[in-house]
C-alpha cells in the first residue's frame, strides 16, 4: 500500500520525520526507522533542514525504500536551481520515490555553512509548477521528456497564523492546490483550539492536511519557541503541565500524545517531528494507542 493509497483510504495518517545523518553511518537512522516499522504510514526525510549539511533526502529515502519503508522525499528550493531540482525529481522517480514534499527551504546563513551562496532560483509554487509539467511530459523550458514521472505531491502551510495573514495563507493554499498538491504538512502546532479555527477555513479545500507535532522536550524549549519561532506558539496550559510534572520525559510524551489524539478529529493525519528525540517516538505511538 503506497502513500497515495493511504491518502485515499481515509484513515488517520501517521508520518514521522527522521533526520538523515551528518555522515554516512546509517545505523541510528535505520534504527529509528526499524523501531516504528509497521506502526506509521510514512517516514519523512528532511533535506538540509535549517541549512545544516547532512546526507541528502534522496539517498536516505532510497535506503528506507529499499528496506520496505514508505519514504517521503523532501525537495526544498534553497540550495538547487531549476535545472538541479528537475533533475533530482527525475532521479527520485526512477528510484521509486514517488511521494515528494516541496517547501521553500532555508537560507544558508542560518545553518552550519553560513558563508554558502544561496540559490532560491524557484519558489515552492514555481517548483510545484515544474513538478506538474514534468508529470505532463515536459520540463520547465518546454522540452519533451523521454518517459514521464508520476508523483504524489505535498506542500506545506503555516498553521500558526491568524487574521489577515491567515487569509494570505489561504490564498497560497488555493494556489498550491491549483498547482497539483495532493496533501499538506503544516508547520508545528501546539494549540488545538487555534488549529481548529484554521482547519474550519482549510477543510473546504478537501485536500488532506497532516499537522506537524513537535515533541516538546522542556519548558525551556517551549519558551524558546515562543520567543524565537514565528508562527508557532506553545500555549500556557501546556507549559504549566510540563512545569508541574516531575517526570519531564513522561510529560513530554503525554503532551505529544494528547495533542495527536486531539488532532484526530481535526485533520487527516499527523507528522511527528522528534527534534533529536527519534528514540522516544515509539513511546509516543504507544501513548496514542497506535
Amino acid at each position: 500500500m503506497g502513500f497515495a493509497d493511504h491518502l485515499a483510504s481515509g484513515e488517520f495518517v501517521k508520518i514521522v520525520e527522521i533526520q538523515p545523518p551528518k555522515g554516512v553511518d546509517l545505523t541510528k537512522f535505520l534504527g529509528h526507522a526499524e523501531a516504528i516499522r509497521g506502526r506509521v504510514n510514512a517516514i519523512l526525510v528532511p533535506e538540509l533542514e535549517t541549512s545544516i549539511m547532512r546526507l541528502s533526502s534522496l539517498a536516505a529515502s532510497k535506503v528506507l525504500s529499499e528496506k520496505g519503508f514508505e519514504a517521503i522525499h523532501h525537495t526544498p528550493c534553497g540550495h538547487k536551481n531549476r535545472i538541479a531540482l528537475q533533475s533530482e525529481l527525475l532521479g527520485a522517480a526512477v528510484l521509486g520515490l514517488e511521494t515528494v514534499w516541496v517547501t521553500r527551504g532555508d537560507p544558508p546563513n542560518i545553518g552550519d555553512h553560513p558563508e554558502a551562496k544561496e540559490v532560491f532560483d524557484l519558489d515552492e509554487n514555481d517548483l510545484l509548477s515544474a513538478i506538474k509539467r514534468l508529470q505532463e511530459g515536459y520540463d520547465l523550458s518546454g522540452n519533451d521528456l523521454k518517459g514521464t514521472p508520476s508523483f504524489t505531491v505535498g506542500a506545506s502551510f503555516s498553521a500558526g497564523v491568524t487574521g489577515h495573514v491567515l487569509d494570505l495563507e489561504l490564498l497560497e493554499i488555493e494556489k498550491k492546490i491549483r498547482l497539483g498538491v495532493d496533501f499538506f504538512i503544516t508547520t508545528p502546532v501546539f494549540d488545538l483550539n487555534q488549529f481548529a479555527r484554521v482547519m474550519e477555513k482549510v477543510r473546504p479545500f478537501k485536500v488532506p492536511v497532516f499537522v506537524s507535532v513537535m515533541i516538546l522536550k522542556s519548558v525551556g524549549m517551549a519558551r524558546y519557541i515562543n520567543k524565537h519561532i514565528d508562527g508557532v506558539m506553545v500555549p500556557d496550559d501546556i507549559i504549566q503541565r510540563m512545569m508541574k510534572e516531575p517526570d519531564k520525559q513522561k510529560a513530554s510524551i503525554d503532551i505529544t500524545a494528547s495533542l495527536i489524539k486531539g488532532f484526530e478529529r481535526l485533520c487527516e493525519g499527523v507528522c511527528i517531528v522528534p527534534i533529536g528525540w527519534e528514540d522516544r517516538v515509539p513511546q509516543v505511538l504507544d501513548a496514542c494507542g497506535y
Partner: peptide
C-alpha cells in the same frame, strides 16, 4: 578558499 558569500546578497 571558497568565497564567503554571506557578505553578498546571500546573507540577506
Amino acid at each position: 578558499p571558497p568565497k564567503k558569500w554571506i557578505t553578498s546578497r546571500d546573507g540577506g
